[in-house]
Design a binder for these strands. Sequence first.
DNA 1: CAGGATCCTGTAGGATACTG
DNA 2: CAGTATCCTACAGGATCCTG
Lengths: 110, 110
Amino acid sequence: MERNQQEEVRALQDTIYVLGGKWKLPIINSICNGNNRFREIERSIPGITTRMLSRELKDMEMNHLIKRTADKDAAVQVLYESTDYCKSFGPIIMEMIKWGKEHRKMITGK
Amino acid sequence: MERNQQEEVRALQDTIYVLGGKWKLPIINSICNGNNRFREIERSIPGITTRMLSRELKDMEMNHLIKRTADKDAAVQVLYESTDYCKSFGPIIMEMIKWGKEHRKMITGK
DNA sequence: CAGGATCCTGTAGGATACTG
DNA sequence: CAGTATCCTACAGGATCCTG
């Protein structure tokens, strides 16, 4: 139980580290929702700037959270896809969305 | 589906806002795990400083995430408790711990 | 034990304009 | 459309020491 708890804090902190910042989760969510073009993702996330999106996407590509493909001859030249690794955040995101909705209900006065 | 997705991003962003930073989640977790004294909480969270813990605790008390009670005559003079509101983060935390554990398994090479 | 006071710094993130 | 390039700043967070 002692040991166990230490392990859990560490796991929690690891996750927080990977998901750090305001944007990674919304981006993951957006891509998993089927948005796969830059502007599309951008428009789907209120408040994000092209600069932040650009940076995060690169970062996430490096960490194999997403896959970027550029094909000069394709109709859609650049596209982003989520990897399986990325999808492993699904449950976390779902819980957070759930929480956010309930929370808003409370604030808005039910 | 359009409408719906907008609502979900917003919910997600709300949650991220509330839980922002490195420490809130670990603190909530610690308190929910039964730690209720300042130093106890502090020791249970690797890397946190007294300054950050102090700040976050105040903040979380203001936002009714935790309850602080000080009683000069009690054996334990100050103690922190989690509110029901606080406990509503349980599922998120569980999922994050789960993810963190799996992740470490992967990194450590299974 | 439960914090407060100070000092300091990096960097996450914003604003805006520009390019092929 | 898919980004880059600059410039800028607040503030999260660290380090350290102090107090009742």
